[in-house]
């Protein structure tokens, strides 16, 4: 089936099988390998992208469901003036070690800060509960998201 998805501001059209996960469409059809896949159970959040501005697990969505939607991946976050403030904050606060969870973590955090106003550290922890990090212990991730939300 032909799908047409606006990915990082550019309309991308491809012929996909209905069973194709959005994560595979992004990685394999479009070559956008910044979106990682970390599990088979929709639990880790490494695959998180924005669909029409809100976080979604791209492993738990079919490419055909995204037909006509706007998708933003980590590759599309930085603007002409450089890194997105959330990326900048992750960098400044040393909010990553191996980096595997980072693209999904950053996308989830961008959506979280946009969706909930007045987040405190507990709210950030709870809001990122769908994103697992095996390295950092979360401390600096929470710091980064708090910094970016100010």
């Amino acid at each position: 089936m032909e799908v047409s998805v606006t990915v990082n501001g550019e309309v991308r059209t491809a012929d996909v099988e209905p069973r194709t996960l959005l994560a595979h469409f992004l990685r394999d059809d479009l070559g956008l390998t910044g979106t990682n896949i970390g599990c088979d159970t929709s639990s880790c959040g490494a695959c998180t992208v924005l669909v029409n501005g809100r976080s979604a697990k791209s492993c738990t969505m079919l490419a055909v469901q995204a037909d006509g939607a706007e998708v933003t991946t980590i590759e599309g976050l930085a603007g002409e003036n450089g890194l997105h403030p959330m990326q900048e904050a992750f960098h400044e606060c040393h909010a990553l070690q191996c980096g595997y969870c980072t693209p999904g973590m950053v996308m989830a955090a961008v959506s979280l800060v946009d969706e909930y106003s007045d987040l405190d550290a507990d709210g950030v922890r709870e809001g990122l509960e769908g994103n697992l990090c095996r390295c950092t212990g979360y401390q600096n991730i929470v710091k980064a998201v708090m910094a970016a939300s100010e």
């Binding site: 959040g45 669909v51 809100r54 976080s55 979604a56 989830a108 979280l112 969706e115 809001g127 769908g130």
Partner: peptide, 9 residues
């Protein structure tokens, strides 16, 4: 329910 990404969809 779940986490924000699950709740969005």
């Amino acid at each position: 329910v779940g986490d924000p990404a699950v709740r969005h969809r």
